[in-house]
Design a protein around this nucleic acid. Structure first.
Lengths: 148, 148
DNA sequence: TTATAAAAAGATACCATTGTCCTTTTATAA
DNA sequence: TTATAAAAGGACAATGGTATCTTTTTATAA
């Protein structure tokens, strides 16, 4: 469903937030290792995010990634918009270019419900809310539960 | 969500069924035109389907594609299985390899519901049922409503 | 039986996503 | 002020999905 780019982006942001709570500012190498993504590619993904101000970065010694004013209240929708555009939230499940309520494909109603459900999740969940689930032990970021 | 291959496959099969009702046996060229997909690629997709016996074909003059014993009762799930494997119905929405009920990612519950909803559609809808919606005028196969 | 029409098959090309590497810029610590 | 550590940026490589073209096989109609 989501591209690797989106997955890495979301996982990376959650990890950054988890670190920020501990007053740390992780760098690419640490982030990539934690989210189990390739280092150089993670750097590229983070570049997209910082360019679009979804997260902040600092160069140089002691640099790394962080949220300004502790603001991690960006929704998954915000992130996904930047990593794959919003076609994913609009496209017909049957592949028709002209699919609409007036001119529906045979899957229109049922698929729309599913896609809208996904949109609701994406708009409701934020990097903060996901992080919170991990902090409270209700979820994990990867196979190791790492809160150190 | 679905790949082009899957979309073309489903649309092609629905068109074949619509033609079969009129005792016709469409060929690749006609199918491709109707579903608005590239001809050569449509041929490849149909090859996959016939190789896996989701639809039958006849070579030579007067040949084309058809359903044996008028059996178009295959589910979208069956089709999708062959066009993109079943990972699409299992994969973690967060991208974790180890995601499970016991070891859930922060999106686990909500995303699972969505994905399961999609699975239900895929298992409930068949090429026949989609065709029926078109025949009864409740849906269209492409921008033109072609039932000639 | 032969010409023809059609699917099957194989080889190849294209393009977007994913991934790597190397250089440049920038900030900090020493 | 200089060495160093880090992100940013640019160029490139690998992969997989999408797409095209040509040849081969097969069945039918004439």
């Amino acid at each position: 469903m989501l591209s690797k780019t989106s997955e890495y982006a979301i996982r990376a942001l959650v990890f950054i937030q988890l670190q920020q709570i501990q007053n740390k500012r992780p760098g690419v190498i640490e982030i990539a290792k934690e989210i189990e993504a390739p280092e150089a590619f993670t750097a590229k993904v983070l570049q997209i995010l910082t360019r679009n101000h979804l997260v902040q970065s600092m160069k140089g010694r002691g640099g790394g990634f962080f949220f300004k004013d502790n603001k991690c209240e960006l929704t998954l929708f915000d992130v996904i918009q930047h990593t794959e555009g919003d076609l994913i939230f609009k496209k017909c499940g049957f592949g028709l270019t002209q699919c609409s309520d007036e001119n529906p494909c045979p899957l229109h109603d049922k698929y729309d419900a599913i896609r809208d459900g996904f949109l609701q999740i994406a708009k409701a969940e934020t990097i903060c809310s996901l992080s919170q689930k991990i902090i409270s032990g209700k979820a994990v970021l990867n196979r190791l539960v790492t809160m150190n």
